[in-house]
Structures are given as C-alpha cells and as structure tokens.
Amino acid sequence: MIASVLLLQRDSVLMKLSLMLILIGSGSTHNQCDGENLSCGPNQPLIRFPFQLVKEMKEPCSYPRLCLSCTEKNETMLLLPTIKLQVIDINYQRKGIFLTEPENCFSNKFMQIINFVQSYQFESLYYEPHNLSIFNCTSAGHRYLRYRADSYSQDLVSCPIFISDSLDSVLKLDLTSCTKMFDIPSPIGFTDGYPLYLKWFKPNCSECEAKGKRCKWKTNNDTEGDIECFECTRKRIHVSKSLIFATTGHIRDSYTFAF
C-alpha cells in the first residue's frame, strides 16, 4: 500500500515537471538549430541555410539572403524583389534548386530572373553563356505545344511568347507554327515548359560541413555574404532543487533536460 502511494506521488511529480518544462520550452527563443527540418508541407523541399523561411514580403529579405515562403496550398515559393517562383526541389549536396513559374510563363518574368541570377551569382546547368530564341506563338492554332502534355505545359493563349535555347530543335519543340522574333544572349540556358535548374556557389559551407558544423551569416545585416561555422547544440534547461520544491512540494535532485 505504501509503495503504491509513493509510486503515485512520483508520477504526480513527473507529470508536473513535464507540464512545467513544456511551458518553459514554448516561451523560449529559438536557437540556431530550430529550423533544420522546416518545410511547407508533405513532398515539399526542406528549408535550411542558405535559405530562410519568411512570411511573404512582410519580412525584409535582400542580398545575400534567399527567402522562401509557403502558400495556402503548402507550395514553396522563392521570393524575389518583384516576382515569385515556385520551388520544385532543392539539392543541398549539389547546391542546386529547381524552379518553375507558377503560371508556366517564364517569358513574362524573364528580365527579373536574369537580374536575380546575376545579382546572386547563380549559374545554370550549362556553364557557358547561351543564346535564347524568342518565339511569338499567337497564331499557333492550339493551346499547348504537342511535345508537352503535363503540368508544366505553357498555355499559348495566356502566354504566347515562348523562349527556348537556340540550340533546341524547332521541330522537336513543335514551334513550326510560331514566328521566331529574335535571339538574345543569356547567362542561363533554359526552355519554357521545363523547370529552371540553378546552382549556387556562394555561400559555400563545405569547410564547415567537413568539420561537422553548420553555417550561418556572420551578422544579421550582413550585405557581403560572409558566413561563419557554428556547432549545432541542443538547448538545455536546468531545473534547480528550489524550483522543483516550489512546484511539487518535494525536494529532489536537480535535473537537466535537453530539447
């Protein structure tokens, strides 16, 4: 009987301590490791350095920071100064990001994308500069090009200007009914209707990762893109004897809890 009473008292103490620690943890500030497994939802890319998750344009985000936000449909969006691009995937090992235009119309945002690539020193899958061909498909006679029949297909009615790599085959792309307008040089090579694949080289966290550490910006307002290494340690909350006594009415050894 006495053993049962002692057991109940011990369980009551542990329950009170657990509740107290939950309240302490929920009111504490986030540490550097809190955002290591963020994402916008199932089947969405993980969001970690050098990207940061923000609430639309309400939070400042300028070079060198790369800001992502979540839509109401749990889609991941890359926030640029004047446009948004949907993030399909992020390969942190290869430092690559796959992007698409939400309305499958890259031509409407072509110059903003080029400015972003040049400002943030991104590179496309092709390392050398490319020439892009610009087509007017207003008189194409059909809504979609026959070579594509998926969710990335460009709607030629709402977006009649089609961009392709100048090396791509007009026949293969089904552009024979479109009118070629001109060629332009571009630091990236891509074709409308396909995700845009870009690689970043800065910031480079390889040295930190080789030491088993993480990367972070040196300062919150750093505009040079300087980074530093840090060790990702779990938060620890130390509960003293006096706090345990005040909460439970019993004196126990002090505890340290990791979060």
Rank of each mutant, 00 (worst) to 15 (best):
V5T: 13
V5M: 08
L6E: 12
L8C: 08
L8S: 06
R10A: 12
R10L: 11
R10F: 14
S12L: 14
V13G: 04
L14F: 08
L14R: 10
L14K: 10
S18Y: 05
I22P: 01
I24E: 03
S26R: 10
G27R: 03
T29A: 07
H30N: 06
N31T: 05
E36L: 15
L38Q: 13
L38T: 13
C40V: 15
N43R: 13
Q44I: 06
P45K: 03
I47H: 05
R48T: 10
F49E: 05
E56Q: 05
E59T: 05
P60I: 02
L66N: 02
L66C: 00
L66H: 04
N74P: 00
T76P: 02
M77P: 08
L78R: 09
L78P: 12
L80D: 02
L85K: 03
V87Y: 06
V87P: 04
D89L: 04
N91V: 03
Y92I: 04
Q93H: 13
Q93R: 12
I97V: 13
F98T: 11
E101V: 06
E101G: 00
P102Q: 06
E103Q: 10
K109F: 12
I114K: 00
N115R: 07
N115P: 01
N115W: 02
E123I: 06
Y127T: 02
Y127I: 08
Y127D: 01
P129V: 01
L132F: 02
C137M: 06
C137K: 03
T138Y: 04
S139Q: 05
G141Q: 03
H142W: 06
R148P: 14
R148T: 15
D150T: 15
D150Y: 11
D150I: 14
S153N: 13
D155T: 15
L156I: 06
V157A: 15
C159H: 09
I161L: 09
S164R: 08
S166Y: 08
D168H: 14
S169E: 03
L171V: 09
D174Y: 11
S177K: 13
S177L: 13
T179Y: 15
P185R: 09
S186G: 09
I188A: 06
P195L: 01
L196I: 07
F201P: 00
C205G: 10
S206G: 06
A210T: 11
K213C: 09
R214P: 11
K218D: 04
N220L: 08
D222I: 02
E224D: 07
G225F: 01
D226H: 13
I227P: 14
I227H: 05
F230P: 04
E231R: 08
C232W: 00
K235A: 00
K235F: 00
K235I: 01
I237V: 13
H238W: 09
V239R: 05
L243I: 13
L243R: 09
L243Q: 11
A246G: 04
T247Q: 09
H250S: 11
S254V: 01
